[in-house]
Nucleic acid binder design. Structure first.
Lengths: 351, 351
DNA sequence: TTCCGTGATGATAGCGCTATCATGCGATCA
DNA sequence: TGATCGCATGATAGCGCTATCATCACGGAA
């Protein structure tokens, strides 16, 4: 067993470098064709006759050959990588979207390179520069509020770009999302129609999407002549369930007759619910609660919580579809896709 | 504005291929040194004299040069990429861990390539093969239950490997995690000590870690002579808050005098709490609830929920530290790190 | 003085793959 | 029948970078 060196090992051993793994040249030799033919057979079998293809496939299996993505990327100046930029990895909203992206990509050749911007436009710019140096096949970025420099970088990148999560009319290239303004407005209108009059807004980490939801909330209240700046309670710290209670307390400190809250997201809504339970505030009679995103927990909470269902997972899938269509040269129906949202009315807002 | 072609563009235009971006050769020419010197200055400035370094840095900035990671990987047969394999992207446990990994890597040269195994060992094997074809700098994989083939693949990979999330004495290379068996046992012992006697187990998607928590639960109950197979209620579907209620109902159908449940994770525990509220079951008097992981929501729930706090984020950071130490040739204190857990006793288990 | 070691720099030759152009061959057309 | 075309295959030359070895200047030891 100790001298079982294969011929390949020996030839490799003589060379100075190399990985020891079979290369396209090894496959070519075994199959009795030129390396370039193997390359073609692997990338697009229709370019090679059936006989050669069979021989090549056999050789590939026999050697356990796997193409080197780095060599491929260098030679073709195009990496089989999609860069994905999200502001947070732990925010379930983006986690769902990223899951949609992975699912839609399946076990195809495209890999994902993920970047976490931590809600920082500067960090986003740095990551985009870094990603572009790899010549990705496409870039998927969150939001539409890039810095001017970032936008120029994206515009001059020669690959498909998809901006996700938001709706807007001036994407760098393609866009898929929904209107946060409309979502905030719809939720607030629902509370108004349900008969609530002192409707607060509770928000954490006021990123651009949160700001737009707030703007929608404000627009609805102003139309109904119910807006009051004191109704708005926000903080810059990142959102979490345990922030809901303190923010509600803040809000009640400013507006004692508060009878409803539109929470910037479901975590806060859940925290508000717990705080109400603890403080003995009846939901929905004394306090209505509406969340945003409609996470799974919302419909089982007691009382069940009204929320705005957002198409997070679908956004991920759709963005990849658009990228794949573009890469395959297929026509894109529309470069701007609005996937909408759906208000889920439940016990927490039924007076 | 239409004829503003720079000299670089013109020379590039003459060549058949190329990206149009400045290369190391451009920097070298501008700085008046050889390409290899630029390469050295970029990778390890101490190899190059201060004067040359200054000139090179200037040229880099002036040209906006960024190294091509693909070319680098090809030439050095080592990509600046760490492969990370997790079973789920939306499970907050892994999201926290991945966040720790990203945070510890910071803006260093190493990138992350993430793979989602969907709790499938076969998929894990496929992804590891794919990752290895890139010659990653390191691999971080979840759990210790790889297939035999996968384990061999990992053992023969010539890069650091860290298995995370679990504790065991036979890692492929390095390991950082904690004992799920002990966690399950500690939680169950707490319930026993608190005076509960009919303690159920509720679990979803019984992956290996869940199985070990169940084994810990069972061990504790058997020691106390309280075990009864009917106490265990599990399902294979993936865990979510809305599964807690139905599972509790199942459990109560089998064991009418159930007085406590140890939930496989916090989502289920939260679902169980809501179901109790809805069904009018007093927590903790008639039903104790204990979760696992101690997500943020647990301590603000009403009543607050007992849980086992797990070092998810820290596992991510530590795994990267171990990888970086190894890559830098620094000594590793111990290849096996047990980060432990901490039982957080709250209202939901205080009879 | 001679020699060798050391450290900085350079020349060369790939890494494994693919873009590009060249070749050969049979089919098609006037 | 010869010109022409399309198609399958091959030869060649890089993609942008780094491993390896070569070179050179300098300083200290013998």
């Amino acid at each position: 067993m100790k001298d079982d060196i294969t011929p390949k090992d020996q030839s490799r051993r003589a060379s100075r470098r190399g990985s020891g793994r079979p290369t396209i040249a090894d496959v070519a030799k075994l199959a009795g064709v030129a390396a370039i033919t193997v390359s073609r057979a692997l990338r697009d079998p229709s370019l090679v006759s059936a006989e050669l293809r069979a021989g090549i496939d056999t050789a590939v299996v026999q050697l356990g050959y796997a193409p080197d993505p780095n060599a491929r990327a260098l030679a073709s100046s195009r990496a089989d990588v999609i860069g994905v930029l999200v502001p947070s990895l732990t925010n379930i909203v983006f986690a769902d979207t990223v899951r949609g992206i992975y699912d839609e990509l399946g076990d195809g050749p495209l890999q994902i390179q993920m970047g976490n911007t931590h809600y920082s436009p500067r960090e986003e710019e740095r990551l985009i520069r870094m990603f572009l140096s790899q010549r990705p096949s496409a870039l998927i970025v969150s939001g539409i509020d890039q810095t001017e420099t970032t936008r120029k970088l994206l515009e001059s990148a020669d690959c498909p770009i998809v901006q996700i999560m938001e709706y807007g009319d001036d994407p760098v290239d393609m866009l898929v999302g929904f209107s946060h303004f409309d979502g905030g407005k719809a939720a607030t209108n629902h509370l108004i129609e349900a008969g609530y009059r002192r409707i607060g807004f509770i928000g954490a980490r006021m990123d651009p999407r949160s700001q737009r939801r707030l703007a929608g909330y404000r627009s609805a209240l102003e139309t109904a002549q119910l807006f009051d700046p004191k109704l708005v309670t926000t903080t810059l710290t990142h959102s979490r369930v345990s922030l809901g209670g303190p923010l509600l307390a803040d809000a009640l400190g400013k507006v004692t007759d508060l009878d409803a809250v539109f929470c910037n997201n479901d975590d806060l809504a859940m925290g508000v619910l717990f705080e109400c339970q603890r403080a003995g505030i009846a939901v929905p009679h004394s306090m209505a609660i509406c969340g945003f995103n409609d996470l799974d927990m919302m419909h089982v909470a007691y009382p069940s919580l009204t929320s705005v269902r957002t198409p997070r997972y679908e956004i991920g899938r759709r963005s990849v579809q658009m990228v794949l269509d573009r890469l395959a040269g297929r026509p894109i129906e529309s470069p701007i896709v609005n996937l909408g949202f759906e208000l889920q009315v439940r016990e927490s807002t039924a007076r």
